[in-house]
Computed example of a mutant assay.
Amino acid sequence: MNNTILVIDDEFIIKESVFDALEDEKYHFIYAENGEIGFQKYIEYNPVVVLLDLRMPILDGFGFLDKIKVMPYDLSSIVVLTGHGSDNEIEKCFSLGVSSFLKKPFNIFELRGLVRNLVDLNNTKRQVQTSCVVQSIISSILQLAISETQSNKRLKDILEFIIDLPIIEGVMQKGAIYIIDDTNGKMVLRESSGISSDLLTFCENISSDTCFCGEQIMNKVEHDRNKDILVPSHYCIPMKTNDTMIGLMVLFLEDNYVKKSEDYQIISEIASIVAIIVRNKA
């Protein structure tokens, strides 16, 4: 669930007031003192709610709204907090996609209830949107699995389709699928794409509870760059059928990419489908 709140205001006391009002809700707060910095953090953190002042130096609230261009299907809501709002400014705010308008000094209970409702609404929209996207992806993968392509090439086609998906941000066009060899318990490289021969040699055989980078598979799914063996950051996703692990999907990530829980949710569902396909010898 996304619980990031971006506060864009040049008054420190407002930041403190917002935190005091919402600290019991366990949100993740990001602050910016003007619209320009706020825009950069909006892009970087993808907040579920933005609390925005209108009058600030460098770039004011209207400039920020012009830059982000709020759309009806966006998964963020903008709440304007200002002590200077005229009727014309309020009308302009709503025309630019603002969800709500609160005048300073705001009532903390009103702010708390409003933010809570917007967070719940946007996360519900996010879940529905993600579910629809995942169903479309799964349908495409299943089509590849039953295609007339030679069976030894289908898994390669599926892997290349996955690493090219624009919905999974930050994934390089590099990935691998491992299958557990029942005879020795080792993880054997079944398919790969975009990986150098040196790295392929290093990754050929690994134990069934360890990623090739040395991390334990079940400890976490996001493994950081390993400079000793020139491995970039990557997602390491167990492939399971009926709660039994049969293999591993590895997707390599761009440097400095901020991993997102939504991405992992999508990849996990994809990995489950690939596991079924592998079990049925795609």
Rank of each mutant, 00 (worst) to 15 (best):
M1Y: 12
N2T: 01
L6F: 01
E11C: 08
F12P: 00
I13T: 12
I14S: 04
D20Y: 12
D20G: 02
L22R: 15
L22Y: 05
E25A: 13
Y27T: 11
H28D: 15
Y31V: 15
A32W: 03
E36A: 12
E36C: 09
Y42N: 05
I43S: 02
Y45G: 02
P47G: 14
V48Q: 09
V49G: 01
L52G: 00
D53P: 13
D53Y: 02
L54A: 01
I58F: 02
I58W: 01
G61D: 00
G63N: 05
F64A: 02
K67H: 07
I68V: 15
P72I: 02
Y73C: 01
L75C: 15
L75Y: 08
L75I: 15
S77D: 15
I78L: 10
I78G: 05
D87L: 08
E89P: 11
I90R: 13
L96R: 11
G97S: 06
V98Q: 03
S99M: 11
K103F: 03
P105C: 10
I108F: 03
I108M: 11
F109Y: 04
F109A: 03
L111C: 10
L114P: 05
L114D: 03
R116L: 04
N117L: 04
V119L: 04
V119M: 04
L121M: 08
K125F: 06
R126Y: 12
V133N: 06
S136L: 07
L144M: 07
T149Y: 05
N152Q: 06
K153E: 15
I158N: 14
F161S: 15
I162W: 05
I163P: 04
G170Q: 03
Q173Y: 08
K174R: 12
A176G: 14
I177N: 03
I177E: 02
I180E: 14
D182V: 05
L189G: 10
L189H: 13
E191H: 11
S193Q: 04
S197C: 05
L200W: 13
N205W: 02
N205Y: 12
N205P: 05
I206T: 12
I217W: 07
M218P: 03
H223W: 07
H223F: 12
D224K: 14
R225L: 09
R225S: 08
K227V: 09
V231P: 02
H234K: 13
H234D: 14
Y235S: 10
P238L: 01
M239P: 02
N242S: 07
N242P: 09
T244G: 00
M249G: 14
F252S: 10
L253I: 03
E254I: 06
N256H: 02
K259A: 14
E262L: 07
Y264N: 08
I276S: 11
N280Y: 06
A282K: 09
